[in-house]
Amino acid sequence: MPIERYIFLAIALFCIGIAGVLIRRNAIIVFMCIELMLNAVNLLLVAFSKMHHLKATAANATAGIEGQLFVFFIMVVAAAEVSVGLAIIVMMYRNVHSVDINFLNRLKH
C-alpha cells in the first residue's frame, strides 16, 4: 500500500481525536479522545518506520528501527498519563459529584 493512505488514516484519526476533545464535555471521554490521538501517531510512526526500512541498503540494515522503538515508549507514557489522569478525575468526582468539565470554571480573577 502506498504511504499516503497511512498518512490519511492517521491524520483522520488525529482530527477525530481533536474534535472529540473540543466537543465532548465528559472528562473521561475527552481522555479517550487524547488516547485516540496518541494511537494515531503510533500508527503513523510504524508506517514511516516500515517505509524507511524498505528503502534501507545493506550498509544500514537497521534503518527505520527508531520509529518502532519510539512506539513502545509512547504506549508506556500513555498508560502512565491515563493512570494519573483517572486518579485526578476520581478526586474531581468526589468534590463536585460529576465529571463534566463545564464545572471547571471556579478559578477566576
Binding site: F31, L38, L44, I74, V77, I88, M92, N95
Partner: peptide
Amino acid sequence: NNAIESGLKYLILAALTSAFLLLGMALFYM
C-alpha cells in the same frame, strides 16, 4: 477544589499538546 480544577485543566491541555508534539516528531521522522 481549586487544586483539582487546575490539575485537570493542566492534564487535559498538556496531554493534548504532547499528542501534537508527537505528530510533529512523526512528520519530522517521515
